[in-house]
Design a protein around this nucleic acid. Structure first.
Lengths: 260, 260
DNA sequence: TAAAAACATGTTGTCAGACAACAAGGGGAC
DNA sequence: GTCCCCTTGTTGTCTGACAACATGTTTTTA
């Protein structure tokens, strides 16, 4: 945390990494304000249907120019969090009006939230595996096998290959998503992976008992691969489900996560 | 489509309903520009890593003020579509940097896209049902039963109850998502439903053979309800999967969808 | 000659003010 | 009571200015 001179004001700036900031870049004022506003909406501090303060007064209370507030609100409008009417005002939208799905990266450090993300991922991935089993091409299988071999070889490198191993696992499931032929599944999974990436690159990976678990994990992945190769839909989605069931158990063993 | 005087220009305005515009409200200039820009990025017209034109030149080429372009780009930044560096420029971000998941509502009218959305929904919902079977409370069951009864009664009303029926079905699965105890599943599903809503309110519902199918559909839902009541995880998620398998078949029968 | 400092240029980030577009309410004319 | 006009307040858009920053060029200095 440092004091940074921004325009005419002296502000505490946090170098947080979250959905509102690109990695390792100082958040802009717009980032700050849009984060604050969307948190207000998301946490119910502003109830649905309630009118937001005017842009003018928001600008004054936040100590920024109206353009900054407008850019922030523009983001909320785009996400369906608020709805504005010219000449009237801006209002908090109904939760059913949300038009985008986001995950706050801070949640990746909380065990409970991580578990829920894992469950979400389970549903998508097992569906993807089933679809892949149905419609995979031979080229798809080759891609998966390649990724599988990468997992094996990075496992052979022991502890040093930990990060590489996790990356190969990601690639493995990306190929499955591609083989499913479903654009949305692919997009959704790659979004999830991007967020998880941050965690992977962190110290957590090195400390986690990745290599210790890898042997058994590899068997789980092989079951997935075999089922897709055999074009057995149910077995494929079941194998994915198995893998994530065990993954959830391993998650419980990890000591680097906050319990709240 | 109409000619509308906006500021100093005369512009063709389309009253489209998409993720960039709230229902039935004229899109603002920011909506237009952000839609155009994000489409350019999404469709690869601007390659990853490529620098965007300067805000100034974008403003000139679009014929709008720089503030409008800035609000639009601000949205893209928030979605992880572009990344800007002060003093340098704005650049198209890697696809892996996406931080939000959206579905273009136009896709709800294309059979293939709708099928893929249905598959995505299948994965999430069957996972939700499994989790719900594990951890549902008695109160959860009561909510689901209520929604189920609503489906029955609106089915009794025949063709007039079509819209009400679809709404009750939504409620039924929302209760399942709630019972799963997974915040993300609930959020994701309710986002999907919000988009589907538009379709429901459209003429499509009235024309679709909803009531004709309802009898068999109801049986499928009951299987889900029973499995969750019995706390049978596998049966619950399997029942959901069944329902969506049949739903996909019914989708193929619908004549109101574009095939492209 | 090579390194360092100063400068010039172009871009994004922020501020300020103005006016247009629009909605809603109030007051007067009829 | 109804209609019309006016006033007021808010969002939408335009314009201009300057700060902050990165980069390449030129000048200065060792």
């Amino acid at each position: 945390m440092a004091d940074v001179d921004v325009g005419q004001r002296l502000v505490k700036r946090h170098l947080v990494v979250d959905s509102f900031t690109r990695i390792n870049r100082r958040p802009s004022l717009t980032d700050d304000i849009s984060q604050k506003l969307s948190r207000m909406v998301l946490e119910g501090e502003l109830a649905a249907g309630q009118q937001l303060p005017t842009e003018q007064s928001l600008a004054e209370s936040f100590g920024v120019a109206r353009t900054v507030v407008r850019e922030a609100i523009s983001r909320l409008k785009h996400d369906g969090l608020v709805d504005s009417r010219q000449g009237v005002g801006a209002f908090v939208a109904e939760p059913s009006a949300r038009s985008a799905f986001r995950i706050n990266p801070a949640c990746f450090e909380k065990r409970q939230k991580l578990l829920e993300i894992l469950q979400l991922r389970t549903g998508i991935t097992s569906e993807a595996a089933g679809l892949a089993a149905r419609s995979r091409s031979d080229a798809d299988i080759e891609c998966m096998e390649q990724a599988y071999r990468d997992m094996e070889s990075s496992l052979a490198e022991g502890h040093d290959g930990a990060e590489q191993l996790v990356l190969a696992e990601r690639t493995f499931y990306r190929h499955i998503a591609e083989a499913s032929g479903n654009q949305y599944i692919l997009e959704f999974l790659s979004m999830l992976d991007a967020r998880i990436d941050m965690e992977l690159r962190s110290v957590a990976v090195k400390n986690a008992r990745v290599t210790e678990w890898s042997a058994e994990v590899l068997v789980e992945h092989q079951a997935v691969l075999d089922a897709i190769r055999d074009q057995n839909e149910d077995a494929a989605s079941q194998a994915v489900r198995h893998h994530y069931t065990y993954a959830a158990q391993r998650l419980a063993d990890r000591a680097d996560l906050a319990d709240t």
